[in-house]
C-alpha cells in the first residue's frame, strides 16, 4: 500500500506531459502595461469609495443608535411623566417619595413645553364618599401646586377627582388602600413632543 500511494502522482505527471506534445508553449501575451498613476488613482478611488460606504454605514448605524437611544429616553420620559404618586391615609401632603417622582417630571415638562397633563386624585374606600371626592381633589391640587411651584404654568395641568370610585385594587387591607391613595397622570396634549430632560 505504501508503494502504490507513492507511484500514482508520478504516473499522472507523465500523462500530462504527453498531452502537450513537443511544441513549446506560446509566450503569454504581455500584461497591459498600466499607467502607474492611473492605477494608483483607481486604487485610491476604490479605497475612498469603500471608506465612504463604511463611513456612511457607520453614520447610519450611529444615527439608528441615536434614534433608538432617543426613543428609549422619550419612552422613559413618558413613563416618568405617567408615574403615579401615593399619599398617606387621609392626607393630601406630597410625601418625600412623591416629591422625588414629581421632581423628575418637572425636568421633562420644562424640556417639553407642548405637553399637558391631567392629574387625577384618588382616595381609598375608607371615610365618606363625598369627603373622599374632596380629598382626591386636594391631592390632585397639591400635586399641581408642587409642579407649578417649579415655574411650570398652571394652564398645563387640569385636575380631576375620582374620590374612592376608581380603586386600582380591591380589598380591605392597608396594602390595597396604600395603592389606591394616589395621583395619576394622563398626558392630554403633546404626547408626540416629549423631550427627555437634558
Amino acid at each position: 500500500m505504501i508503494v502504490r500511494r507513492f507511484v500514482t502522482p508520478v504516473v499522472a505527471a507523465m500523462v500530462l506531459v504527453g498531452a502537450c506534445g513537443g511544441d513549446p508553449p506560446p509566450p503569454p501575451p504581455p500584461p497591459p502595461q498600466a499607467n502607474q498613476d492611473s492605477l494608483r488613482a483607481y486604487q485610491d478611488s476604490v479605497r475612498r469609495a469603500g471608506e465612504a460606504a463604511q463611513a456612511e454605514a457607520a453614520r447610519l448605524a450611529a444615527e439608528r443608535a441615536a434614534a433608538a437611544e432617543r426613543a428609549r429616553r422619550v419612552t422613559a420620559a413618558r413613563t416618568t411623566l405617567e408615574e403615579m404618586v401615593f399619599f398617606d391615609y387621609d392626607e393630601s401632603d406630597v410625601r418625600d417619595d412623591a416629591a422625588a417622582v414629581l421632581r423628575r417630571k418637572v425636568d421633562i415638562l420644562r424640556a417639553s413645553p407642548q405637553v399637558r397633563i391631567r392629574i387625577e386624585g384618588h382616595a381609598d374606600e375608607r371615610g365618606s364618599t363625598e369627603y373622599n371626592l374632596a380629598l382626591g381633589n386636594r391631592r390632585a391640587e397639591a400635586v399641581r401646586q408642587f409642579l407649578v411651584g417649579f415655574g411650570l404654568t398652571q394652564d398645563r395641568f387640569e385636575i380631576v377627582s375620582f374620590g374612592e370610585g376608581r380603586p386600582r385594587q380591591q380589598g380591605a387591607t392597608e396594602q390595597v388602600w396604600a395603592q389606591n391613595r394616589r395621583g395619576e397622570f394622563i398626558i392630554t396634549a403633546g404626547a408626540n413632543a416629549i423631550n427627555p430632560a437634558n
Binding site: 387621609d90 392626607e91 393630601s92 369627603y131 374632596a134 380629598l135
Partner: peptide
C-alpha cells in the same frame, strides 16, 4: 362640610 381645619 368643610376641610378648612385641614386634612383628616
Amino acid at each position: 362640610n368643610t376641610q378648612r381645619f385641614g386634612d383628616a
